[in-house]
Amino acid sequence: MIGRILIPASFATLLLGVWELAVRSFGVPVYILPPPSRIAITFFTRFPMLARHGATTLGEIALGLTLAASFGFLLAIALHHSRSLERGLRPFIVASQMLPVFAIAPLLVVWLGYGVWPKVVVTALIGFFPVVVSELDGLRATSRETVDLLLSMGATRRQLLTKLLLPASLPSLFSGLKLAATLSVVGATIGEWVGARRGLGYLMLESNARLHIDLVFASILMLTLIGLLLFGALRIIERWALRWRDSAGGSASARRGGG
């Protein structure tokens, strides 16, 4: 337990120490690479501004992620229930992932303007695929025997979905959601780079142009914190929703920890 915190912490300290020392001893100018101490000071002194832009970005992420999760979830259920729909759409879903979202982000600005929507759409597009694929895998993971059991009890299609397929797919769904959350930070940032007046992506671009590199790093730090916050929140919801797994998973990790 101590090792799980202590080892990464000392590693981070070492890395920051080397960075600080290198920047100072080689006399690297602040507008090329500021030392970590300077970034930390900027982060705390400019925190109100960073928080304001962070709130904008977080809002875009939350909206985009919600869209990705809802559409991905519903589409996965539809695809699971219709063979022909799946055959028809699967190539397009896969192709949509080959498409670099970067490339269509400027178009989204043309279509949707400079407001919040192009960012939300970019975020949703990026997060959509992991949700669909993982939920679809989860729905397929149910064994034939349990399906047989419920059918023999006289379950309707709806009961089969709510009592068996959906709960069985939850672990997969959460893996997809966590991946989508990680990607959504990237999505919102790209969306803001292409055209925005607010948000951490905008702040990064602005500060970069003015050679305020410490503010660029402070924005990156803020984005990282937002990503960690989202991931942590999802972990908490996942723990609660999959508490039936805790017992088995807990003993397995205890065994690993003991070895």
Binding site: E145, S152, M153
Partner: peptide, 18 residues
């Protein structure tokens, strides 16, 4: 369907239910 009580050979307890 719905008129017999069938117990499959494999373990069919649903892990998320007590």
């Amino acid at each position: 369907l719905g008129r017999t009580a069938y117990l499959p050979q494999e373990d069919t307890l649903l892990p998320w239910r007590t």
